[in-house]
Design a protein around this nucleic acid. Sequence first.
DNA 1: CGAAACACGGTAAACGTTTACAGACACTTT
DNA 2: AAAGTGTCTGTAAACGTTTACCGTGTTTCG
Lengths: 343, 343
Amino acid sequence: MADGPTITTIAERAGVSIASVSRVLNGLPTRQETVRKVMAAADELGYVRNAVARSLKSRRTHQVAFAMADVGNPAYLAMLRQIQPVLKAAGYRLVLHSTDAVVADEIDVLHSLGERYVDGLIMSPLRVTDAHLQMLAAARAPVVIIGTVPEGTPVDNVRADSRTGVRLAVDHLHALGRRRIALVNGPPDTWPGASRGAAYREALEQLGLPYDDDLVQIGDFYRAQGGRAVAELLDRAPDVDALMCANDLIALGALDVLRAAGRRVPDDVAVVGMDDTDLAAASWPSLSSVSLGSAERGKAAAELLLDRLNGDDAAPRVITVPPRLVVRASTAGETYGHEGGRT
Amino acid sequence: MADGPTITTIAERAGVSIASVSRVLNGLPTRQETVRKVMAAADELGYVRNAVARSLKSRRTHQVAFAMADVGNPAYLAMLRQIQPVLKAAGYRLVLHSTDAVVADEIDVLHSLGERYVDGLIMSPLRVTDAHLQMLAAARAPVVIIGTVPEGTPVDNVRADSRTGVRLAVDHLHALGRRRIALVNGPPDTWPGASRGAAYREALEQLGLPYDDDLVQIGDFYRAQGGRAVAELLDRAPDVDALMCANDLIALGALDVLRAAGRRVPDDVAVVGMDDTDLAAASWPSLSSVSLGSAERGKAAAELLLDRLNGDDAAPRVITVPPRLVVRASTAGETYGHEGGRT
DNA sequence: CGAAACACGGTAAACGTTTACAGACACTTT
DNA sequence: AAAGTGTCTGTAAACGTTTACCGTGTTTCG
C-alpha cells in the first residue's frame, strides 16, 4: 500500500507540468500528444483522483447525507430505497445517519453541515423543535425535510398527509358497516402520534360517529406493545368491531392478540395498519394498510435536493404526498395474493 | 449562507496566528489567555471545522463505506443495523453503496477506494470473481468482506456457514418424522444458491435419505417465484411432507401456495425458511427459519475493520458465524409468540 | 518580412487545515 | 551578566487538487 500516485507523479513521468495533467484529466482542450503521454503515465501508475483534495478546491464533495431516526424502521428504509438510486444516478454518494430518534443527535447532524463533508442533507425528524428551526435557518447547506415543518421555515419540505390517511381508513371501515372503530395509537407527543389522534377524532365526527374514550388506546409503535394495548382495549370495550392501528407493527400485535382471543379477522374485528410496509403483505391474514407514501416522499425529497444542488434558489417548496389505502384480507376478507404483492 | 468562518477569520478576530487557533482547537498546550480569546472568537463566529481540509492534511476521512447488493434486502439491512452503531460510536460516518448485485458496480466501489474518500470498506459481494480478487489485492484501504473469499486473499473475511445451516434445518425436519424433504432453491450460479444446494444433498446423505431430483426445485429468491416453484413441486411430488426454502421470501411464497392448495402447515407440509428476517416472525403461521447470523456478521465485520483502522496489521483474519435454527409455527405447530419475537 | 493572433503549457496561488521549526520572551542558574 | 532552560507563538510548508495568468513558439496576415 505504498503512497498512491498523485498528479505530480504523473507529471514527472510524462514530462509535463501538473497543470497539464489536471487539464487532461478534466478533458480540457490539450494537444493530442500531451493527452497521450499523460494518459499513458496515469494508466501505468494506476492513478485515481484524490476526492478529498478535489473537494477542498472545488468546494463540492458530491456527497449527500440522509438522516433517519432509526435504521430499523421500514418506513425510513422505504425512503432510503428511493433516495439511494436517485442520488447515485446524479453522481452523489450517500452518507447515512441514524439519530436513534434523539433530538440532540438530529441537531448534531444539522450542526455538522458546517464541516462541509456533504453538499446537502435530507432529514426526517420525529418532531420539529425550536432547536431544529434555529439550526435550519442557519444551515450551511441545502436541507430537505421529510415531515412537516412550520410555514416560513426556509427549507424544502415533503409532507405526508396522515390526516387524510386516517380518514381513508376510517371511512373504509365505516363503509364496511363497522361502527365501533377503535384507535390504537403511539405516543401523542410525537408528530405521527399527535396528528393521527386528531385525524381519528375528526374522521369520526365527519361520519357522525360518537367519540368514545374507551375506544382509544395508547401504546408505543412496536408489535409487543401494540398487542398489549389491544388486549386492554378488548377488556374495556369488548364490542369493538374495527381497529385503526397507527402503524403496521401495532397492527401485527393486534392480529396476534385477536387470534389468541379467538376473534376472527376480519369477520369479528377488522384491522387496518399504517405505512404499508413489507410486513403488511407478509402477515396472515394480510394486512390492509394506509400507505403514507414513504417511497414517494423519499424520491421527491431527493429530487428537490438535487435541484438545489444544481443551483436552484427559488423560494422553499412544499410537496404533499397523498396517502393511499391498500385493502387486503384483514378488512376485506379477500384471500391473499389478490392485490398482487410486490415481492 | 455567506462563506463560513475559517481559522484565518478566527485568527484575525482573536489577534493571534492560525497556528495558535489550530492548537487551541485541538487542545494542544496553550496559554490560558490565548485559549480564551480563540474560544471566544470561534463561538462568536459560529465556527465549525472544515472536515475536507482536515482530511486532506491528516489523510483520514473518518468515513467508512458499506457496499451491499441491494438496499431492499432484509439480510443486508440486518448487517447495516449492526454496522451503523459500531462505526458511529468510533466516530466514523457511514457511506452507503448499493451495487444492485452488479459485479461491475462492486468493482467500481473497490476501485473508488483510490479516491480516498473513505478510510475503509465493508463489502458483501454476491459472488467473488477474479476481478474482485485482483482489486482486493490492490485495495488502497482496508477491506472486510462479508461472505466467503478464497484462502490467501489478503482481506479480513466474515463468513456465514450455510452448509451447517441447511444441515440444522434438514435434521430438524427429519427429527419431526419427515422423510420427503424438498429443497426450493435460488439460482445455482450464485454463491448462496450453490452452497445451499450442495449442503442439502450432503445433509440427506448423512441422514441416509435418498436424493430425489423431483424434490429439488429451482426458482429465484423472491416470493412470487418461490410460490410458483412450490406449485410445480406439488404437481411433481405430491407426497412431499417438508420444504426447505433457500430464503424467507421463497418460504412465504410456499405458504401462499400451500394454503391455496389446501395443505395444512405444518401438519401436512412443514416449511423452513432461511435468513430469519422480520418477515418470518410476521407471517402466519410464523415461519421457522435458519438464521445465518446477518446481524452478528455485520457487527463482526465492523469491529474487524475498526481494528485495522487502529493500525492492526496482523495477518488477515477469518471469522465464521454459526447459524442458528429458529423454530416457529411452520414446523413445530407452536402458537405464535412462543419464541419471543424481538419486535 | 514583421507584427498580430493564437494555441499550448508552465508557474504559482489558492482551497482550509496541521505541524515542524525557529524566534521571542521570561526566568533560572552559574 | 552571560548563558542556559523552558514556555509560548508565529512563519511557512505541506496535503493534492484546480485554475488564473503569463510566456513561448507557431501560424496568419498585411
